[in-house]
């Protein structure tokens, strides 16, 4: 399966929220939709979910217009909500029923997912008796009930503590391994980096970067090195390197060095070592996803 979004445009009144958004994601892969607040992530997801229609553009599944009901979908909306006064088991069975499960299958699935979420003890409780994090997990369970072929999660990590975030990561990883399409939005880069191969960065209604993360990171300048130098020797290291006419600076607890084209790295490091600065290691600089994100979303404002 391949879910493809093409040239989505959407305005609310005079405000143009989406300006030609497009990306694609395939079975067994996940796509992280990244963007700052108000970038249009939730609007894009709502259009995919047919909460409202785009002004123009297409949502395609295997090159045919995507319709709800074609595949099993698990959806975690950004606006979380369950019936506060109804029993958890009742409403989860209800939601599973609405997604086409029979009563018996629904009950079975609810039992399974509450066990998975370690929430079995709350099965006969009302939602408003639960903590916010646990309510979040119930929501996630609700999205998983119908064994979705396509998982669409809007800001799934917000409100989860590290232990629960790990639980969610495991579930997402399993879903990817099981060949599901996983599309989620986030602005917590560290989580995205862990299991997303592809990202789409949305800024002010436009996709500013849609790429394979690893490939993108490798595309950065290979001459930018990071040197492992003890903190007390970093000043000397920068002074020595600058003295040799090289571009060097102290940044984020390391010494960053740009090696010009045509120069070998190792003699420079040997010289630095001989000058009395202990060089414990070095590597080619690879930006974190956060660096990439900031680079693509702040420069265009």
């Amino acid at each position: 399966m391949r879910l493809e979004i093409r040239q989505l445009y959407k305005s609310f009144g005079d405000h143009e929220v989406l300006k030609g958004v497009g990306f694609a994601v395939e079975s067994g892969h996940s796509l992280g939709l990244l963007g700052r607040n108000g970038a249009g992530k939730t609007t894009t997801i709502r259009i995919i979910m047919d909460v409202f229609a785009a002004d123009s553009g297409e949502v395609l599944l295997d090159n045919r217009p995507f319709r709800q009901g074609d595949v099993r979908i698990g959806y975690l909306p950004e606006e979380r909500g369950l019936y506060p006064k109804r029993l958890i088991v009742d409403q989860l069975v209800y939601l599973a029923n609405l997604r086409g499960l029979s009563l018996a299958d629904a009950k079975h699935s609810v039992q399974h997912w509450l066990e998975r979420m370690e929430l079995t003890e709350y099965i006969g409780k009302k939602v408003d008796a639960l903590s916010k994090g646990n309510q979040q997990k119930i929501q996630l369970a609700a999205a998983m009930l119908n064994d979705p072929q396509m998982l669409i999660l809007d800001e799934p990590f917000s409100g989860l503590d590290p232990v629960n975030a790990k639980l969610l990561k495991d579930i997402v990883r399993e879903s990817i391994a099981a060949g599901k399409i996983v599309l989620f939005s986030s602005h917590q880069m560290s989580y995205v980096e862990e299991f997303c191969r592809d990202i789409a960065i949305l800024n002010r209604g436009e996709i500013v970067l849609n790429t394979d993360i690893e490939a993108h990171k490798r595309s950065y300048d290979r001459h930018h090195l990071v040197l492992d130098v003890p903190a007390d020797a970093q000043g000397n290291a920068v002074a020595y390197l600058s003295g040799k006419g090289l571009q060097a600076e102290q940044a984020r607890g390391d010494v960053h060095l740009h090696v010009p084209d045509g120069k070998d790295t190792l003699p420079i490091l040997a010289g630095l070592s001989e000058s009395g600065v202990p060089v414990e290691g070095y590597r080619v600089f690879e930006p974190s996803l956060e660096d990439v994100f900031v680079e693509y979303t702040s420069s265009t404002i």
Partner: peptide, 16 residues
């Protein structure tokens, strides 16, 4: 109004 207020609605409307 309660379904709307508690934001259950988006979950319902996208599946039903």
């Amino acid at each position: 109004a309660t379904e709307k207020g508690s934001r259950t609605m988006e979950l319902l409307i996208t599946s039903t």
